[in-house]
Amino acid sequence: MAFTFSTFIQQVINGLSLGSVYALIAVGYSLVYSILLFSNFAHGGFLVVGGYACYYLLTQWGYGVSVSMFGALIASGITAVITERLAYKPIRERTSLTLYLLIASMGVNIIIENLFVVTVGGRIRALPQNTFPTGVFSLWGGVTLSASDILSLVTAVIFLGLLQVFLNRTRWGLAIRAAACDIRTAGLMGVNVTFLISLVFFVAGVLAAVGGIFLSVRYSLYPQLGSITTKAFIAAVIGGLGSLPGAVVGSLILGLAEMLTAGFISSQMRDLVVYSLLVIMLLIRPAGFFGKEISEKI
């Protein structure tokens, strides 16, 4: 494939659009990691719940777009809180080994995925046509910019901005930042840790749902859609586990790398490039771009 400037610009636009969706997922995952120090593999499940909730609110109950999206965010947030209460809390109280949480989270992911397979079937669905603006703007030299690209970028910026305000300007945001430093001390200082953890899971679930809705617009909706979170995990690791700016930067890098590989090498290579990036990053700088350097992890 020849290198042309317009292809380059086109792939950069696609990469940023994809990266912004990854960012929404990666930030939620990183937020949970920063508090509980374990990889929550059920995050993909929350995303799927959000996608299906939006789909059914739109098609079965005939609500408008904004109500459906709001409902989807709440549904996914509540799923995350319930998961934490039923599965993770008993384990946390019993042991400090995060391995058990990791495996339980994989179990939860499998449960959510297969609940959808069993109840609504594994069929691939698409959100109704006119849900989101579908216009395509032609720029110069054949480069196009679709309305959904703009929408996903803008939404990602809005939600990440809201999160930033929440973390930096509110009391609970302060508590979450304190807990990310040292959860035990935060507890001793009078933070209600149980509520705090639920809150973190709720926020993570909401962000996952936003990502899920955009993924189902971009691709389509199916029970295994959550497996795309593996990419968001990788983005979070590249940026630095537990660091929110890191998760955003990592996501954009990953989105760009994927789309540029697809545009200039071949689209079969894009996943291979993603995994190679991960391994190279872990070898050079395991803590990622923005991660805390902790000797124990190296």
């Binding site: 690791v237 291979l272 395991p286 992890k297």
Partner: peptide, 28 residues
């Protein structure tokens, strides 16, 4: 040789990447 330096979640995540990379190479 390079990856066993990593511990905890980091090795686990690296092993996901390596495992999937091997599978993708076989596939392509």
């Amino acid at each position: 040789i390079p990856t066993l330096k990593l511990t905890g979640d980091y090795y686990a995540i690296a092993s996901i990447g390596l495992g999937e990379a091997i599978r993708l190479i076989l596939e392509n």
